[in-house]
Amino acid sequence: MTDFPEELLRGYRGFRAAKFPRHRERYESLASKGQFPATLVIACCDSRAAPETVFGSGPGQMFVVRNVANIVPPCKPDDGHHSTSAALEFAVQCLDVKNIVVMGHCSCGGIAAALKSTHTPLSPGNFIGQWIEILRPIISEVVDNATVATSSRQSVAERKSVLQSLKNLRSFPFVKAREELGELRLFGTWFDIGAGQLWVADEHSGRFSPLDLALPHAESADSEAFRHGIEISRTFAI
């Protein structure tokens, strides 16, 4: 296949030459015994905000779902095709994950499109337009809030969309039930790409705070910080 993208071929060569041999037993175990990730991460498709990179995750450690603007839709069973909802159902019901992390990020194109659509609506038949319509309530809230400067709308909307996704997660009965039993924990995060910094939501106050790197094993998505909660130091109000 001579026209295969060269940059991907180089990466694959490196994987086969170095990474795979070092972790061969891990891959063989995953292939024969299956996967048992403790955490589901719902992130954006954006190439700059890969959760596996941010959390230093290896094979089999995280179950990752990525879509435009890291949106969790409300539970709405019908005849449509619901890839994010299906992945959520599989992660909770079949893989028995213990954590769900919604990971937003700065400069999100999906959020920018949602903000723009308040002035110039996207075509009703447009896939992205239909998808980001889920954000309509929070976009309207941000745009109509006179205390939010125009220059801050993007960042504020990115964080509010994470909070909305957490709310929508609880509209799924199997998520709500497990959280109430203490078997599942939900976290909202926002990644500052340029600073390489992860911010964590306090749902009660609506504020985001940088993850405290002094916490034990805070660099891992399957860490004590994510299993037992995250302490908050500084805050960012939205």
Rank of each mutant, 00 (worst) to 15 (best):
N67F: 01
V54Y: 01
N70Q: 04
R185I: 08
Y27V: 08
L40F: 02
V142C: 05
H81Y: 07
V101M: 04
L211S: 04
L88Y: 00
V64L: 00
P173G: 13
L181D: 15
I71Q: 05
L163Q: 14
I139E: 01
P137G: 12
N168Q: 09
E6H: 06
L186Y: 00
L213H: 06
H81T: 12
M103H: 04
G229H: 03
M1V: 08
R10L: 13
P51N: 10
E133S: 14
A146Y: 02
F208K: 06
K33G: 07
Q61I: 00
L40W: 03
L166S: 08
D202Q: 11
F20L: 15
D96G: 09
G206L: 10
D222Y: 05
S209W: 00
P37S: 10
S57C: 12
A38T: 10
V65C: 09
F36N: 15
F191E: 08
G14D: 14
R26C: 12
V68Y: 03
M1L: 11
S161Y: 00
A91L: 06
D46E: 08
R26P: 03
G182N: 09
I128G: 07
L8G: 03
G188Q: 06
S171G: 07
L163Y: 01
E203Y: 01
F20I: 07
I238R: 05
I100W: 01
D46L: 05
L88Q: 06
E158W: 00
L181N: 14
L169M: 09
T2F: 05
E89W: 00
G125I: 02
I230Y: 00
L8M: 12
L30H: 08
G229M: 08
E219C: 14
S32M: 06
G110N: 10
A31P: 01
E133F: 01
P210L: 08
A50Q: 13
D3C: 09
Y27G: 01
F90G: 05
N67E: 07
S83G: 15
D144Q: 14
S152G: 02
V156D: 03
R48E: 03
R22W: 04
A49S: 15
P73I: 06
K176N: 13
R185P: 02
A69L: 01
G14K: 09
K160H: 09
I71D: 02
G109S: 06
V54H: 04
P51Q: 07
P21Y: 06
A214G: 12
I138F: 01
P137Q: 12
P124K: 08
